[in-house]
């Protein structure tokens, strides 16, 4: 039934993703350093370190912006789903680049024998009461610590240990890291360097992230609303309105979203939440007879919401019926793994 079924682990797609990611990051850093060194040749050792600090810092900030843009982009167009597939490795690499940026900063002080100055900067408590002059390194350190926490829990072990809802909530801290990073640059580099590129970059990044979230949220807001009938069942639409091997998503009043799939003449409804990372199943397709999550390829049978053996994940299912030629779904969830799909030809 599901020869293509693979749990999320190292595979060819992930290796390609990581190789491309590493190549792009390396190319960016090398190009930045080469161009800057050509335009403004560093005069001494600390100046070279400063150049590395800027290259890695800019790279980490752009990567953080990209990470926050991938989610809404994937909701706006399936073309961006491949970027989502291995976003966790993207996040871990972002932490590594940010950590290197911080280590070069420590090195910059060390080569000038001024290492205690970092401690002084971070522990001059009166500066924390100022806006301009706020110890911006503390903001960067805060962002780095959040990225460390997220990177160290970016493994399926932690996903299972914490459970998907807790893990997902924890990883929303990335927004906090982004906010700290923006203010780290705004109160740091932007104050000492008046090059217009810095505020333009920060504003563009903020507009991009906020704009994409707004557009994705706005588009999603109205499209899944359905009114329940007198008996509580929700009309989905004629069977043909559900694209073959795809789903229509409906909102259960006060409950979770429901993905109503059609596979030829079979119609079935399951929760829209993948058991792996709560990915949007209804945005996936039926592949090899199984509902396939668009995020990481987890698969479930349409009939009963169970993952094919040897896998054990199960989804809550929902009763469906055809009334006056319209597919309707009962928004009261059945126990995970309960057979509930029907044939529309009978």
């Amino acid at each position: 039934m599901s020869v293509g079924f693979r749990a999320v682990q190292w595979n060819r797609d992930k290796l390609i993703y990581d190789a491309v990611l590493l190549a792009v990051v390396a190319a960016f850093i090398v190009s930045f350093i080469a161009i800057e060194a050509h335009l403004h040749p560093p005069k001494d050792g600390p100046a070279w370190i400063d150049l590395r600090i800027r290259a890695f810092g800019l790279c980490a900030f752009l990567m953080l912006t990209a990470i926050l843009s991938i989610g809404p982009l994937a909701r706006l167009s399936p073309r961006f789903l491949p970027l989502l597939y291995n976003r966790r490795h993207f996040g871990v690499l972002t932490f590594v680049i940010a950590a290197l940026h911080a280590s070069f900063m420590v090195e910059w002080y060390a080569v000038q024998n001024t290492l205690p100055n970092i401690v002084t900067e971070l522990t001059t408590w009166t500066d924390y009461g100022r806006f301009i002059g706020f110890p911006f390194k503390a903001l960067g350190l805060g962002a780095l610590l959040i990225l460390l926490l997220l990177a160290s829990t970016s493994h399926d072990y932690w996903l299972q240990f914490l459970s998907p809802p807790v893990w997902k909530a924890l990883h929303m801290l990335v927004y906090g890291a982004y906010g700290l990073a923006v203010m780290h640059v705004a109160l740091g580099a932007m104050q000492s360097n008046r090059h217009p590129a810095i505020p333009v970059l920060l504003a563009a990044s903020l507009c991009l992230v906020a704009g994409l979230h707004l557009v994705a949220g706005w588009r999603e807001r109205g499209c899944h609303r359905r009114r329940a009938g007198a008996d509580g069942w929700i009309a989905v639409g004629p069977p043909d309105s559900i694209p073959d091997k795809c789903a229509r998503i409906v909102n259960a009043p006060g409950g979770e979203r429901i993905a109503v799939f059609r596979d030829g003449d079979r119609v079935g409804a399951v929760t829209n939440l993948c058991a792996h990372q709560n990915g949007p199943l209804g945005e996936g397709r039926i592949i090899d007879g199984c509902i396939t999550c668009p995020w990481h390829g987890y698969q479930y049978r349409l009939d009963d919401g169970c993952a094919p053996p040897p896998f054990t994940e199960r989804l809550a299912t929902y009763r469906v019926r055809i009334a006056r030629g319209i597919v309707e779904v009962d928004p009261r969830a059945l126990a995970p793994g309960t057979p509930a799909a029907i044939s529309i030809s009978s």
Partner: peptide, 25 residues
């Protein structure tokens, strides 16, 4: 994302977005 996560997500990024935009300005 669960319904709770969607609500939390909207709240977090909206509040943070406004705060960061204000801070940047």
């Amino acid at each position: 994302m669960t319904r709770t996560h969607r609500r939390m997500h909207r709240l977090v990024w909206t509040v943070l977005g406004i705060a960061v935009a204000l801070g940047l300005a």
